[in-house]
């Protein structure tokens, strides 16, 4: 579905991604691990078209993404929930969700709205409230719900559990698993919480200094000695 071939991305002179290749097949849940500054968020931004690689290719099905503007990439169904939620603070919860469905003209929007309100009843209660007044956990829920309303084919989540209380974090992971399994949405998950993430992933990649350090099945990576030491804290 998504295939990245040897891309390089830099901010000015600083190389952030230095030759990464990566694949996500339809129906997979793939986790991207790595420490701060390893290039995870940069990679997602590049897939979404906000940053452009200076070499390498990114293909989705049979389309070239690396030459496409961001708004067209969204129209292909490649949806990102960015790090730090990035909700629209002075739009109501409902308006935020409507913006999620900005590119859609199909009749399924109403149904999806019901679906996310079922998933996150708190959002339904607060649908008229400004998103800027939500708590961190609620804002994360909104960011995910907004992504679901974009009708993703490939759903990319950037550190959805960052800074959340354990209870809420578990809820969020439950929802991610649920939309993966029940809706069959392909997911590319960027996480710091390696154990939770790898536990539910089909495959994983570990990014280090802008390069792929390790890749393999989720279960294999959990048991990898190096991963245990560096990311699981054993």
């Amino acid at each position: 579905m998504l295939s990245i071939e040897n891309i390089k991305v830099s901010y000015g002179k600083a190389m952030a991604i230095d030759g990464v290749s990566l694949k996500v097949e339809e129906g997979e849940l793939v986790t991207l691990l790595g420490s701060n500054g390893a290039g995870k968020s940069t990679l997602l931004k590049t897939i979404s078209g906000i940053l452009k690689p200076h070499t390498g290719t990114i293909r989705f099905d049979d389309q070239d993404l690396h030459t496409m503007p961001p708004h067209q990439i969204v129209r292909l169904g490649i949806i990102q929930v960015p790090e730090g939620r990035e909700v629209f603070p002075e739009l109501s919860v409902l308006e935020n969700l409507k913006m999620g469905a900005f590119t859609r003209k199909d009749s399924g929007v109403g149904k999806d709205l019901d679906f996310v309100f079922e998933l996150f009843p708190r959002l339904k209660e607060r649908r008229r409230q400004w998103a800027g007044t939500l708590s961190g956990g609620e804002a994360q829920m909104l960011a995910i719900a907004r992504g679901i309303l974009s009708a993703p084919k490939l759903f990319m989540l950037d550190e959805p559990s960052l800074g959340l209380a354990p209870v809420i974090r578990n809820d969020i992971f439950k929802v991610i698993r649920q939309i993966h399994q029940e809706r069959g949405i392909t997911i590319l998950l960027v996480e710091q919480n390696a154990k939770l993430a790898l536990g539910m992933s089909s495959r994983g990649y570990i990014l280090e200094n802008g390069k792929v350090g390790l890749e393999g099945k989720g279960a294999d990576l959990i048991n990898n000695e190096y991963v245990k030491k560096a990311y699981l804290g054993y």
């Binding site: 961001p70 629209f88 739009l91 308006e95 907004r146």
Partner: peptide, 20 residues
């Protein structure tokens, strides 16, 4: 609403598929 969204968060607006 898209105009307001863009003014509040340009990056997020890009991710919504809004043609900035």
């Amino acid at each position: 609403i898209a105009i307001r969204a863009t003014s509040q968060n340009r990056n997020a607006a890009l991710l919504m598929g809004i043609d900035i």
